[in-house]
Design a protein around this nucleic acid. Sequence first.
DNA 1: ACGGTGACGAGAT
DNA 2: TATCTCGCCACCG
Length: 116
Amino acid sequence: MFGMAADSSPPPFRTRVLALVRAVPRGRVSSYGDIAALAGSPRAARGVGAALQGLGDDTDVPWWRVVNRSGRLTIPADHGLRVLQRTLLERERVRFTPGGEVDMERHRWGGPGEVA
DNA sequence: ACGGTGACGAGAT
DNA sequence: TATCTCGCCACCG
């Protein structure tokens, strides 16, 4: 079974991040920090952003379900994806506050304090 | 292999 | 309460 396990290096951070993001259910969101923590590197929130940026167009990964800790959509307008993210989230019935942030209390998925 | 970059987050002002 | 600054860590050229 594990005959080829000579190389037991942990999967690259990015791989774990993508797997986790893929696990975020439709209509729910997670934060860069939570994904990082779930990936085993609580301090690598920025790394998560970098990993998602490296997605490219080959997106089976619901990158739009990842927002910052406050529910804010932090993708620079330059990428042009910021607006798309908002659209995709609303399409999943995600509620936004008047300030334009995702209602995290309502949609936050995963994270340390999620389950008791 | 090295160094710069930043889609974060928490603390300080 | 709103901003600004600093530290962290993975990605990319």
